[in-house]
């Protein structure tokens, strides 16, 4: 079976500020892009797993975690897992960086 992998350029690495979140809309998908203090870039679906929803891109970034801005859930940027005592999961996307261009792999 043929698998289509879509790689979409979304930003320039050097333009991203550490500890900040960016919201990117690809067609009807909203993605939150984060750059940590260590320079690692992560992409997650821009939607809090809290039942009442909300966005993630404006949350506080600490190390490899982001805190949901509305309900304060702590979410791992690496695998999208919500940390105890809350539970849940956010979809994550792979990132590829080539010559300063960041691609999100859909």
């Amino acid at each position: 079976m043929l698998q289509t992998i879509t790689r979409i350029p979304v930003a320039n690495y050097s333009n991203l500020k550490a500890r900040a979140g960016y919201s990117i809309k690809i067609d009807d998908k909203e993605i939150a892009l984060f750059k940590t203090t260590n320079g690692i870039v992560y992409a997650l679906e821009n939607r809090s797993p809290h039942p009442k929803g909300g966005v993630l891109s404006e949350g506080l970034v600490s190390g490899d975690y982001v805190f949901c801005p509305v309900y304060d859930w702590k979410i791992s940027l690496k695998d999208g897992l919500v940390q105890a005592p809350d539970t849940g999961y956010v979809k994550t996307f792979n990132i590829e960086i080539e010559k300063d261009i960041i691609f999100v792999v859909l």
Binding site: T6, I8, N15, S23, I24, K25, I26, D27
Partner: peptide
């Protein structure tokens, strides 16, 4: 503005 208030929209 770039850091806080921009939403990048990309059409594939």
């Amino acid at each position: 503005q770039e850091k806080y208030y921009t939403k990048h929209t990309i059409k594939v």
